[in-house]
Write a protein that binds this DNA or RNA. Structure first.
Length: 477
DNA sequence: GTAGGGTTAG
């Protein structure tokens, strides 16, 4: 069940669990926890509740892990904090007291939801109940400070961090290094490496990888190679992740053939070439239209016993779609070992959208949402809007655009551009202008293509509108 | 064998 859970095959897990319940070996609490954890991660909360009820009625006693999984489901996976707190109360009445993990999980969810004020209360609650917070309680808070760019708060927290071993020390510093890199404070990172020994911690391979990756991303590959030398000078060996970072950097510098040589060489030296390495290379080849090379690498990885994941399949599906081989792409998605996600369906939907096949788009959307229970994202909606605009079904397109709001998404630039383009091409200038207003109110800046579209439409239909629109487009109103 | 945590690919 855990293996199926790891690859996201939730229904297989459930099938095995049901089979087990009917057989002579009734699932114990560990089996139940495995299933509950899998359902929580898949956000299948209704089924989770059913399994939980069944567990209670069959007198399998929950343990701390069971409750911790529930806290994770309500705190981290769904931000239903009232339910998460209720689990805590339930634990007390059950006589199974919350531990550091319970509270840390709760803090993690609150941090992710940006509810920093509530965290203080949780920490106080912990201290009241004689449960000392540890590094894992503070790590999510540190991450929240970093994401908000609150350098001062992060630094203060690091100083007060209750680190109990070198691994934890490295963990905390790596989060800090990553945050500084992402905000472009490379000088500060250099200083952190320099002062490491005097401050009592030792940078790890991950510290260097984080730094090197950030340098590559801003085009400072030379500096990254210098960091590599520094790392090796300190007795640390590069790992597959290090190689992947450099591989990705080569790919982005359009040195894809050099990157392929690295792949061959790594085998020659007996390096373990990873799934991620293949994915990096294959996605680059897909982007430059080398679909046959993608297929060759796909076969190569299967031959070498490297197991593809959803991303790998998505790249292959993307390549097949770009090559207009829609049937083959769909065949692959139906293949047993393939766990499709929202990207898979977006890729297929986009493929059918480009070939103008609206009935296939609708069929696929149905399969995605009703059968596979995959939640659409903003890209899914954008594709649907584009498809309907393309077919002149502007009313349906506007309906779908409204759904975006209802599902809790904010339309992005692509969504607005697509729907406005559709409106203007169908003569709905006023609707287009109305959408322009809400777009500007949302703080989105129209691009050149959209500006041109408006000017054209105004000139054609209502020249007196032109100046109003131009003023708006240029942000003067 | 179940719960909390840092680096790589769209």
């Amino acid at each position: 069940m855990k293996s199926f859970s790891r690859v996201g095959k939730v229904d297989e897990v459930l099938r095995l669990f049901r089979q087990m319940k009917e057989g002579p070996c009734y699932p114990n609490i560990l089996c139940h926890n495995t299933v509950l954890n899998c359902l929580a991660a898949a956000k299948r909360f209704n089924v989770l509740r059913v399994v939980l009820e069944e567990m209670y009625s069959s007198r399998v006693l929950p343990n701390v892990s069971t409750f911790n999984i529930l806290v994770k489901a309500y705190s981290c996976y769904s931000h239903q904090f009232n339910l998460a707190f209720r689990v805590l109360d339930e634990m007390f009445t059950f006589g199974c007291n919350p531990d550091v993990t319970t509270y840390s999980t709760l803090v993690s969810g609150l941090s992710r939801a940006g509810r920093v004020a509530d965290i203080e209360a949780v920490i106080e609650m912990m201290l009241d109940r004689n449960c000392d917070p540890n590094v894992f309680t503070f790590v999510p808070i540190l991450k929240a400070h970093c994401e908000r760019g609150d350098v001062k708060a992060a630094e203060t927290l690091i100083e007060r961090m209750p680190v109990s071993n070198s691994l934890q020390n490295s963990l905390v510093h790596n989060i800090w290094i990553d945050a500084l890199c992402k905000s472009g404070h490379f000088d500060k990172v250099k200083l952190i490496f320099k002062e490491a020994t005097s401050k009592g911690w030792k940078p790890s391979t991950i510290s260097y990888n984080t730094y090197m990756n950030a340098l590559c991303k801003v085009g400072e590959a030379d500096e990254a190679y210098r960091a590599l030398e520094m790392m090796m000078g300190n007795g640390l060996y590069p790992t597959v992740v290090t190689m992947n970072i450099l591989l990705d950097s080569l790919c982005h510098a359009s040195k894809v053939f050099e990157a392929k040589k690295v792949l061959d060489l790594s085998f020659h030296f007996g390096w373990e070439f990873s799934l991620v390495s293949y994915n990096i290379l294959m996605s680059t080849l897909c982007k430059i239209g080398q679909w046959q090379s993608v297929m060759m690498l796909f076969i190569d990885m299967l031959k070498k016993g490297v197991c593809p994941n959803t991303r790998t399949y998505n790249i292959v599906v993307h390549s097949l779609c770009e090559a207009k081989k829609m049937r083959e792409a769909e065949y692959l998605v139906k293949f047993q070992g393939f766990v499709a996600d929202v990207v898979t369906y977006n890729t297929l939907l986009d493929g059918y959208c480009k070939t103008g096949n609206i009935s296939e788009v609708n069929n696929l959307y149905y399969r995605m949402t009703a059968v596979e229970k995959i939640d659409p994202d903003i890209i899914t909606y954008n594709i649907l809007i584009e498809m309907h605009c393309k077919k002149g079904k502007i009313k349906d397109a506007i309906d779908i655009f409204r759904q975006v709001h209802l599902k809790g998404f904010l339309p992005d630039l692509v969504a607005y551009s697509t729907i406005i383009d559709g409106c203007l091409k169908n003569g709905l200038l006023d609707k287009g202008l109305q959408l322009l207003d809400s777009m500007l109110a949302q703080g989105l800046v129209p691009n050149i293509a959209l500006q041109e579209l408006f000017v054209r439409a105004c000139c054609k239909k209502n020249p007196s509108h032109v100046w109003i629109s131009i003023e708006k487009l240029l942000g003067r109103r």
